[in-house]
Design a protein around this nucleic acid. Structure first.
Lengths: 199, 199
DNA sequence: TTGCTAACCGGAACAGCGTTCCGTATCGTC
DNA sequence: GACGATACGGAACGCTGTTCCGGTTAGCAA
């Protein structure tokens, strides 16, 4: 996906290089600021970090919700795309485990977002389905590959596992000392149960 | 309860009459403004309606949450106290029905509040229990009286009924044309069921 | 009743916010 | 290289919450 402005579709005509640069910089800066100061952080904090004027931000994201939604989609994409390189570099079940950790880290940054999600702003309406559309196939493929390799059982619904990991992550505090990671590892071990040697 | 300032206790020494007047005016004005513009309404709108300077508001309610909590308590009190006069003027089951309608009207004005409630501000921590402490005995007494008069059954838990009416009211839109009221009436009829003649 | 003082009031003033506007700079093309 | 369209930056505007302080008033004592 091409992280374009908030018109919701593909660019109707090629975007100028500096504009695309601005958008990328803003998206990155906003993600960092949202992570540290929450989604209610001042606009100027984002523009300052991006080294960009306020006008530039409003040109590309007329509404605050546009920026938030774009950052969300951007991070969803980054997380989903991470699966490919993990698969290339690790064994099937290992790639699965690592991706779930990555996914948990993603969820952990979304604490302040749930309030915005339920604010009724229509700009957010498409976000949950985007989340599903992007992650379910990715996780589904990871599960499939590992199952076909005989490394995990094959009766796991990706949607269920997605929700389970999400729930596992939500209540965690910031300083949970790897508790969430250990729980996810446990979950993965659960997946292994019932294959080849073990019963 | 004496709607004092936000020190949480009774006035440690008699308050000047003009101060008490200001507090009352502010509480009334704030309630009206919150009802029309939501709890996020500008402070100046409240002070303007109360015919009072900003300094006066901040003197009595240093934090915004203090004002919101005070308005809430004030309205809880008004609603709870309404029961007494209803009992004096109507038959037991009628008083009960009328009070439930009154309670539903109260809940209906609390739409915007739930977000504030869950904001984590400790000023709101005591509100839910205040709600319970104030309403459960009132409704309990109404139920008791009506039950002893043989007008309704006697196996109703006031806490349950409180929650039921609350839930009944929450999803209602502003223009529900008396739908909520009809549902509550139905609930009261349900209470009647199983007494004297009927089965 | 009068006078005194602590308490209170009003609103101007300040700081910080989101948002708009427009002169200037840059890109892509001819 | 020159030109038009596009995008950039940041000053400026209006609105916000909050503070501050000179003037006013309530309550009490003489």
């Amino acid at each position: 996906m091409s992280d374009g402005p908030a018109d919701g579709g593909r660019p109707r005509q090629r975007m100028r290089a500096d504009a695309q640069r601005s958008i990328d910089t803003l998206l990155t800066a906003a993600a960092e600021v949202f992570a540290t100061s929450g989604v209610d952080a001042p606009v100027r904090q984002i523009t300052a970090r991006a080294g960009v004027g306020a006008g530039t931000l409003y040109r590309h994201f007329p509404q605050r919700s546009d920026l938030i939604a774009a950052v969300f989609r951007h991070e969803v994409d980054a997380c989903a795309d991470a699966a490919a390189s993990l698969v290339a570099q690790h064994e099937a079940v290992d790639a699965l485990a690592r991706w779930l950790q990555r996914f948990a880290a993603f969820i952990a940054t979304k604490r302040g977002l749930s309030a915005a999600l339920h604010s009724g702003d229509p700009a957010y309406d498409s976000l949950p389905s985007y989340f599903q559309q992007r992650f379910v196939p990715v996780l589904g493929a990871l599960l499939d590959t590992a199952a076909k390799a005989g490394q995990i059982r094959s009766d796991i619904d990706p949607e269920d596992l997605l929700r389970a990991v999400g729930n596992l992550t939500l209540p965690a505090q910031e300083d949970d000392n790897g508790h969430t990671q250990r729980m996810i590892a446990l979950l993965v071990d659960g997946l292994r149960y019932g294959t080849h040697g073990s019963v």
